[in-house]
Amino acid sequence: RELEAFAERFKQRRIKLGVTQADVGAALANLKIPGVGSLSQSTICRFESLTLSHNNMIALKPVLQAWLEEAE
């Protein structure tokens, strides 16, 4: 499924970029996305391991996609 594929791609790109899960969480606050502050390292970890609820995964995907586009 698309969500699982994105989570895997996100993790691979993050590692290639040399960015930690905690760095991603902190950097999200800098994107100034309305309603989104920083996220914890454990939230990023749970996203990558697909252990968040489906609704949370869907909500976080565009936020993490925005970070990925900014980071690349």
Rank of each mutant, 00 (worst) to 15 (best):
L17M: 10
L3Q: 07
A22V: 05
E48S: 00
K11L: 03
G18P: 02
A27I: 08
I44L: 00
T20K: 08
E72S: 08
P62M: 03
W67T: 02
W67K: 00
K16W: 07
A26T: 10
Q65H: 11
L50S: 14
G35Y: 06
S40W: 04
R9T: 14
V19H: 13
L60F: 05
R46M: 08
I33S: 01
L28N: 02
L50K: 13
E69N: 11
L60Q: 04
Q21I: 12
L31R: 06
A26H: 12
S49D: 15
R9K: 14
A22W: 05
W67P: 02
K11F: 03
V63I: 14
V36Y: 09
V24K: 00
C45W: 06
A29Y: 05
L68Q: 03
R9W: 09
R46T: 02
S49Q: 12
V19T: 07
L50E: 08
L64Y: 05
A7L: 02
L3M: 06
L3V: 15
S38T: 14
C45P: 06
L50A: 15
C45N: 13
V24Y: 00
V24N: 01
A22M: 08
A29I: 06
G25E: 12
L39W: 02
L28K: 00
L60K: 01
L28C: 03
L3F: 10
K11T: 06
G37H: 13
H54N: 12
S42N: 15
S38K: 14
N30S: 08
R14D: 03
R9L: 14
I58M: 15
R1G: 13
R14I: 02
A29M: 09
A7H: 01
E8M: 13
L28I: 11
F47P: 00
P62F: 03
G35K: 05
A29N: 12
K16V: 10
E8Y: 06
F47V: 01
V19S: 09
A29C: 14
E48A: 00
K32V: 13
M57K: 03
L68E: 03
R14A: 00
A7T: 06
E70F: 04
A7F: 02
Q65G: 14
M57V: 06
R46D: 15
F6D: 05
N55L: 15
G37D: 10
G18V: 00
